[in-house]
């Protein structure tokens, strides 16, 4: 299945901002985090299709996965 992965802020440094990945079925968010070489401890916020999600979520065809370190402002 095809999934779009987006990395933000410090997570994108030395990696990429956005990339389409071809994944096997039953791939979790954590699997993708490991696959793209991000330390899961650095991931504070996980969105799938614009909704908060978690490491154990099973990705679906055409999902958009967005990963953020701790961020804030306002």
């Amino acid at each position: 299945m095809r999934v779009k992965v987006k990395l933000f802020a410090t997570l994108a440094k030395g990696r990429f901002g956005e990339r389409g990945l071809e994944l096997n079925a039953s791939t979790t968010v954590l699997d993708v985090v490991n696959l793209v070489g991000v330390d899961s401890n650095d991931v504070a916020l996980i969105f799938v299709n614009g909704r908060h999600s978690s490491f154990d979520y099973l990705l679906q065809e055409d999902d958009r996965l967005s990963l953020f370190p701790p961020i804030g402002g306002g």
């Binding site: 802020a9 614009g50 701790p70 961020i71 804030g72 402002g73």
Partner: peptide
């Protein structure tokens, strides 16, 4: 030691929020 005030805000400023609010719809 907090990730927001120790890392994200100094590196990117408050405008670090644009991408996450956009992603969150």
């Amino acid at each position: 030691k907090h990730g927001v005030t120790g890392q994200a805000l100094p590196a990117y400023g408050t405008n670090v929020l644009t991408n996450i609010l956009n992603e969150a719809g």
